[in-house]
Design a protein around this nucleic acid. Sequence first.
DNA 1: TTGTATGCGTTATCAT
DNA 2: ATGATAACGCATACAA
Lengths: 331, 331
Amino acid sequence: MGTKLTIDDIAEALGVSKTTVSRAISGKGRIGRETRGRVQEYIQAHNYKPNVIAKGLAQQRTYNIVVAWPGDPGIVELPFFQNCLIGMSQAAEDAGYDILVSVADSKDISKLQRIVENHKVDGAVLTRTLVRDPLAAYLKESGLPFVAIGSTEDPEVLQIDNDHYAACRELTSVLLAKGIRKLALIGGEDNLVITQTRRSGFLAAFEDAKIQPDRSLIFTGTDGQAEVTDMVDEILEKKADGVICMDDFFAGNVMEVCKSRKIRIPEDLKLASFYDSSVLDYASPAVTSLNFNDRRLGAAAIRMLLDKIEGKEVKNIRLKTYEVMLRESTK
Amino acid sequence: MGTKLTIDDIAEALGVSKTTVSRAISGKGRIGRETRGRVQEYIQAHNYKPNVIAKGLAQQRTYNIVVAWPGDPGIVELPFFQNCLIGMSQAAEDAGYDILVSVADSKDISKLQRIVENHKVDGAVLTRTLVRDPLAAYLKESGLPFVAIGSTEDPEVLQIDNDHYAACRELTSVLLAKGIRKLALIGGEDNLVITQTRRSGFLAAFEDAKIQPDRSLIFTGTDGQAEVTDMVDEILEKKADGVICMDDFFAGNVMEVCKSRKIRIPEDLKLASFYDSSVLDYASPAVTSLNFNDRRLGAAAIRMLLDKIEGKEVKNIRLKTYEVMLRESTK
DNA sequence: TTGTATGCGTTATCAT
DNA sequence: ATGATAACGCATACAA
């Protein structure tokens, strides 16, 4: 039962030294073919599992990765993080690592700090990055290897992300090509890098199409239903023919407001979202949006981090795996 | 910087033995008031943090808890798990523990097994329990302390859960009191304990009201949109005046079917869900449902587990914190 | 190829 | 009240 089998027990049972057993397991150092076989056989038969804690103590490693999770209500429910976690978990598992989560407000360093200072992890993944990220700054100073999901301005920070710039540019282009020219943009917090990236992609599409965007129709820095109501009213007043939202929550808000204002989608106003989630699964009409592969993103982030930990040279990654999902709301 | 400060360094700097330093920190064993003060002061000034790994090796502990997460697509997106995690994380943090996640299919033991056998955790939390749960069976055999969120039949397994029985009974009672008497029930997988619990609560309400339920209107063991379509047709054919769904996904499905069948909610058919999530946030009409406090549940589960780990006597918990959210769909 | 001795950072067991 | 020393389970430099 309680597999308390240690490397010493095996050594004694086989009449060899613990060093030999250790070598047979790790494969490091020269060791006799036959001896090695005996050890392998024994650990197989007795289901020996090395104590990772002890192993870690000896080589100053934990075989744990911490994932910093945003605890903000609202954001929390986006399936992105959950899907991302599945990918991360799988990738970590494949390498013999485990995932430790730290959920906290993005501006609160303390939780992550405790974990790092207690030597509980070999690296970290940030799942959401602010423009000037406190967590990133702390990790950088601490010297712990880490990667950020979502772009940061700091070139020294390892980054991985979906190519939101290209994706948003494409979605916008598609809408412009459909003849929707007075397009409004409703976005998230200004201090999120992704907000700026999306806006850039949005504007780039206008440039591609040689159309002058109406910058007074770009609303960022918002955060809440009340403001959205005002925005929609302003948008309607300015006779816009379409709205792109930075995420599904905003899209949902817009739909509610339109409903109360008797504005029909897509007849009176087209609607699209930069992120596809289940939040709008049952919304009517179905909303045109961008679809990313979050699991893949999570897995890639972990592999990248592990490479970094092993001292390999790693470069930033920008995943191209996205697709524009055209639905009823822009017909 | 690289806080490589060890207990030895402190001992040397203060001219005492490491034993003394260890005592001053842990508070265990007798130690002079003055000596203790000096040590405390020193570790404060130099920001000393004990190496939890080494500490763990010495006392056969990891200060880690593993949370088994269901990896099934679909379930994944329910905000329950994410909210639950926030509560768990907080409770663990308060006790100096960290949360390690293992995401896998509920029937796949291997992931969890690796973590347990490698001695990486002191305990486990199961976030979803099957009727005959393989994970629970494995953990039980392994001897590792664990608690299950969601009831199990096995009385030897520590359990904590919202009182779904009472909650579903109440929701059903409310609807019956509103005069909705031909109530249908559409439910989840038969091998989930919660499915059975909810059905029991549903039936209990009928008994309370001394009304005979039409058992042919109870549909469990379903899993998918196609079947739901058939069910709704059958329900309509039998002239039911209301439907209760076991979760928001089913409720969403029902709404879609009704829409295509030109059935109006709530005029032609009332609708309610046993679980309130953001999945239906933008659904119209708003759906009447039960609202639980998931964070609180997560936190309580962790505290319960830690008590168990520390050898305290712990008993099963059934949280009463729920409320019936009456909305438009049952007006 | 194999074994010995030592270290990793902490707690626990004895003495003193 | 304090200190020397031995665990904890594994890795590794150095010897043999």
